[in-house]
């Protein structure tokens, strides 16, 4: 079937098998390799994308669901100031994620900060528990997210 959707701010039209996984469509056919297939059961968070603005597991989305959707991958987030804030926050907390889980962590933190400018402990816990990779500790990550929230708030206040 032919589907049209918005991928990283650009409209895209592609012929897909409705049963194909979104993570495979992105990686194998569109060359966006930031989302990585991990557990393929929606638990590890390494294939995360933002699907219509919400964090979603790319391995639990069949290609037909992309019809009319807006999808943001780590590649689309990378050039934005939002990404820079998260990056700076992680560096400051010495919590830079490894390459395997980077997409999951950056996108989940981005989704969190979009909905909670000042994240609560519960929302932080929910967000961080969605990415299983233990390349860095929970405490450091939590600190990194708080720094990132702070960087973002200050940038928004400066109007940039």
């Amino acid at each position: 079937m032919n589907i049209i959707f918005t991928l990283n701010h650009e409209p895209i039209e592609i012929d897909v098998d409705p049963a194909e996984l979104l993570v495979d469509l992105l990686r194998l056919r569109l060359g966006l390799r930031g989302a990585r297939p991990g557990c393929l059961r929606g638990q590890c968070g390494s294939c995360s994308v933002l699907f219509n603005g919400a964090l979603a597991a790319g391995c639990l989305i069949p290609a037909f669901r992309a019809y009319g959707a807006t999808i943001l991958t780590i590649e689309g987030l990378m050039d934005t100031p939002d990404y820079q804030d998260i990056e700076k926050g992680f560096i400051r907390a010495n919590a830079r994620p490894c390459r395997f889980c980077a997409a999951g962590k950056y996108l989940s933190v981005h989704a969190l900060l979009e909905s909670h400018a000042d994240p609560t402990d519960e929302s932080l816990q929910d967000t961080l528990s969605g990415v299983w990779c233990r390349c860095t500790t929970h405490q450091r990550l939590a600190r990194g997210v708080r720094y990132a929230a702070d960087f973002r708030r200050r940038r928004v206040q400066r109007g940039r």
Partner: peptide, 12 residues
Amino acid sequence: LRMIGPSAVASL
């Protein structure tokens, strides 16, 4: 409902 899955699953 919080136990159903991480946020990447709960959004679907």
